[in-house]
Structures are given as structure tokens and as C-alpha cells.
Simulated assay, not measured.
Amino acid sequence: MNDLQYKLFELESKHRKNATAPSKHLRVFYGWAKLGKVRKKEAISVIFENERQREERTLRAIAKYQHTVFVREQTMQEMQGVEGIIRVFTEYSIYLSDRHINGSLTMALKANSEADKNHISLKIRNEIEAALRSHYLLTHKDYHEPVTQLFLEFENDN
């Protein structure tokens, strides 16, 4: 055996020994969902990798679903549910048309940050928020934050 074949054999045998343990390098992809015939509403798309495959295949599959702006590794807490999942990816979306968000980019980014607060640090959440915000504002140059009514004022005519 030459050196390359031996190294591949070592890697394969090491992989077989650790086949029951989840992969240590699963990733989370943050981006904006691609719109098309199936998906018609704008949303923040968060895709969790459940199983590793060839890098080019992963990136091609992710590119079908979203415009990726940020990638990070999953925490051990996030990887707990990976065993026994049939799907290669799990996607969560935060729709801008949701009644709680009401078209507000700030509210959508806040909801995404709240969802991640138990798993990642504030610094990384701020980086994700900045990347999502900058990409959205680049593609929606005429975007303005919607005006929301915070309270009611009643005038008394007495």
C-alpha cells in the first residue's frame, strides 16, 4: 500500500469505530429563503445539517433553499437530536408575513436571536443579525421599517 491508500484506510477505520457517535462538525446555515413556485413568502431560513455528506453536494443542496449569509458549527446541545433522523437537513423559517412580525425586519431578526439565545453567545448572534440585515437591505433597497402603533390615545371632548 502506498501512503495515500494507508491514510484513507486509517480514516475509514477510525470512522467505523466512531460510527455510533454523531459527527463533530455539523453546521448551521443562516440565510434568506429563495422564493419560487413553492415558497412565495420571504423568510429567514435556518438550516441544520443532520448528517455530513460531500461538501459540494451539501453546498449545492443548501443553495437551492436559501441565500446563505452565515455558517457556524452546531453546539453539542443542538446535536443531541441528530441520531435517528432520516433527513439530511432540517429547516426552520421565520416568515416576515407572520402576524407577530408584521413585515418588520427588526422583529424577524429579534425572533431569530431569541431562538438562538440558549445555544450561542451574544457576539455570534449579533454577527448573524448583521449579516442577515445587510443582505436583506442590499436586495431590498427601498425597504422601510413598518410603522406600528404602540398605544392608543383617546381624546376627551369634555
Rank of each mutant, 00 (worst) to 15 (best):
I128N: 02
N118M: 10
V69D: 05
K14P: 00
N2V: 01
P22I: 15
E91A: 12
H119S: 08
S23F: 10
R27Y: 01
F29Q: 03
V38G: 06
A130E: 11
Y143C: 03
L122I: 11
F70C: 09
T68W: 00
L105N: 05
H144A: 09
R133P: 02
I85P: 00
L138Q: 14
V28Q: 02
A130R: 08
V46H: 01
L59C: 08
E129N: 11
K24M: 12
A63P: 01
D116L: 09
A108G: 07
D116S: 04
Y92F: 06
H100I: 09
T90E: 08
T90I: 06
S45F: 01
L152T: 15
S104L: 06
S104C: 08
Q149S: 09
N112C: 11
I101R: 02
S113D: 13
E129P: 00
S45A: 03
N50C: 06
E10N: 12
A111F: 04
D116H: 08
I94S: 02
L122K: 15
E129S: 11
K40Y: 04
E49W: 06
R60Y: 04
I94T: 06
R72G: 04
A61F: 07
Q53Y: 05
K34T: 05
Q66G: 01
R57I: 11
I86L: 11
R52K: 15
A131H: 08
L122F: 10
V28N: 06
G31C: 01
R16S: 12
N118P: 00
T20Q: 14
T75P: 05
V69R: 08
R72F: 00
V46A: 02
E78T: 06
K64Q: 14
M79Y: 01
I128A: 02
E145S: 07
Q77P: 00
L109Y: 09
V28M: 03
A131S: 13
N158K: 12
Y65W: 03
A131G: 10
L59R: 14
T68Q: 11
W32G: 04
H144R: 15
A130V: 02
L109M: 12
A111T: 11
N2T: 05
S134G: 04
E73A: 06
T75S: 09
F48V: 05
N158V: 13
E155S: 15
R99A: 14
E155P: 07
K7I: 12
S121T: 10
L105D: 03
N102S: 12
R57W: 04
M107F: 12
T106A: 15
R16W: 04
Q80L: 13
K40F: 04
G36V: 01
V28H: 01
K24F: 10
T68H: 03
G36W: 00
N156T: 15
H135D: 13
V69E: 06
I86A: 14
V46K: 04
G31V: 02
E51W: 03
R27M: 06
E155T: 15
R133K: 13
E129W: 03
S97A: 13
F29R: 01
R54D: 15
E56S: 14
E91M: 09
Y6I: 10
V82P: 02
F89R: 11
P22W: 07
E10C: 10
